[in-house]
Every structure is written in structure tokens, then in C-alpha cells.
Computed example of a mutant assay.
Amino acid sequence: MSKIAIDLHYLPNLEFFAAIAEAEELLVFPRDRYQRQSYLNRTRIRLANKVETLSIPIVGRRPRIPLEEVKIDYSQKWQAIHLRGIQSAYGKAPFFEYFFPYFQEIFESGEESLLSLNQRFLTVCLKLLRSSARIAIASEEKIPDGVRDIRGQIEPGRPFSERVFYQPVPYTQLFGVDFEPNLGILDLLFCTGPEAEKILRESVKKQ
């Protein structure tokens, strides 16, 4: 069985899904430390005139706390902002009406934990991509033998072209003339629907 240790990103980008394309089990480590300026609480969508980053606010600014202790700050009404942004970006996309309710339900659930919220989003994404990979929670901090560890590798600070996971495969996006690679998974799902799985498999960088 192919097992990969992952970070639970918020509505992960296409590089993330290319990296886990062959995985049968995705191992999450709740005691890993929260990293600011990471994809743990941010995703990217394409609006009419720009690419927008959506960020989930967290309670407090305590550095280096375990992921399982990170709570979402609902005082900032971030759900309304994110839902409005997603609807503006993809409301006219071919598969929006089919897939959006899955995500809207999670947005409106009031999940307190960032880790739990991200796990729910990833579970739905895997389902819509018809992936057989399952998410497992590690019971200890030590990584088991035979597990490929990609934690900390997919980060906003460096371009995806410098890493070994993802090569862009263009598809028809809603806005713009030039293809914008490596957006959040919502872009691919809403724009391509059942073709998303095939596009992701073609996006796996040849080693």
C-alpha cells in the first residue's frame, strides 16, 4: 500500500493532489506544529481580474502550537467572505451547481478546529475526484517505515516548478486568456467536473 504523510491544507492546490495521486493512504500528524504563511489556512481562486487568496483566520497568534490545537476565529465572518468569493469566481462554471453544495455544507458547519475543517474538505475533494485514498490519523509523532513524507514541502514561498510533484496541464478556466496553473482544487472541479481526475493524473511530474 502506498502511504504518504501529508499536511492538511485548506482546499489544497493542484500540486498537492498531483503529489498524492498514487496514494492509497494519507497519514496526518495532529501534533505537527502550525506554520504561519503556509497553505494550512489559505487557498487560491481565480476571479475575473485577478487571482485571490482566501485565508481562514485563527484564534490568537501563538507560534508553533500543535495543529490539533489551532482554532478558527469566527468573529471575522470569514465564511461569508469565502463563500461570496467562490460564488463570484465560479458561479457560472459548468459544474458549480453540482459540486458547490458539498462545500457550502462544510463552510456552514461551524467546525471549531482548523484540522477537522481541512480534513472534511479533503474528504469531499477525494470523493468528487473518485479517489480511493483514505485519510488516517497518526497515533504517534514518529513516522512509520515505508511512508513517503511530503510534509512541509508544498509551500507558498517557493514556485511549484522548483519541486518534483506538479507539471501544469492546461484546461478551460472561466476567466482570462492565459492559463493560471496550480490554483486551489475548486478551480479544477468547478471548471472540468468529471475530467478533473484525468487532468490531475496527467499533471504528475515525470521523475
Rank of each mutant, 00 (worst) to 15 (best):
D7L: 02
D7P: 05
D7R: 14
H9L: 03
H9V: 00
H9T: 01
H9E: 13
Y10R: 09
L11M: 10
P12G: 06
P12K: 13
L14V: 01
L14F: 00
E15T: 03
F16G: 01
F16M: 08
A18H: 00
A18R: 00
A18E: 02
A19E: 02
I20T: 08
A21L: 05
A23I: 12
E24V: 08
E24T: 14
E24G: 15
E24F: 04
L26T: 02
F29Q: 14
F29L: 05
P30L: 01
R33P: 05
Y34S: 08
Q35F: 07
S38G: 09
S38Y: 07
L40Q: 07
T43G: 06
I45A: 11
I45S: 11
R46P: 10
L47E: 12
N49V: 00
N49P: 02
K50L: 07
V51K: 08
E52M: 12
L54T: 00
L54C: 04
L54K: 03
I56H: 12
P57Q: 04
P57T: 05
V59Q: 00
G60Q: 09
R61Q: 11
R62L: 13
R62Q: 15
R64T: 03
R64F: 11
R64Y: 07
I65Q: 13
I65V: 15
I65M: 13
P66Q: 10
P66W: 07
E68F: 14
V70L: 04
V70H: 03
V70N: 03
I72P: 00
D73F: 10
D73E: 05
Y74T: 03
Y74G: 04
Q76C: 14
W78P: 07
W78T: 00
W78L: 11
A80G: 14
I81R: 10
L83F: 02
G85P: 02
Q87F: 13
S88T: 06
A89P: 12
Y90F: 10
G91M: 13
K92M: 10
A93E: 05
A93T: 08
A93R: 09
A93K: 08
F95N: 02
F96S: 01
F96W: 04
E97H: 11
Y98F: 13
Y98T: 15
Y98L: 12
F99W: 03
F100C: 09
Y102A: 10
Y102C: 06
F103S: 01
Q104T: 09
E105W: 01
E105Y: 04
F107A: 10
E108K: 12
S109Y: 02
G110H: 08
G110R: 07
E111S: 06
E111A: 11
E111G: 13
E112W: 10
S113C: 08
L114P: 04
L114E: 03
L115Y: 04
S116P: 06
S116G: 10
S116A: 15
N118F: 04
R120T: 06
R120F: 03
R120G: 08
F121G: 05
F121I: 05
L122V: 07
L122F: 03
T123G: 01
V124S: 01
V124C: 02
C125L: 05
C125S: 06
L128G: 01
L128A: 02
L128Q: 05
L128C: 00
R130C: 08
R130E: 07
S132P: 05
A136R: 15
A136K: 15
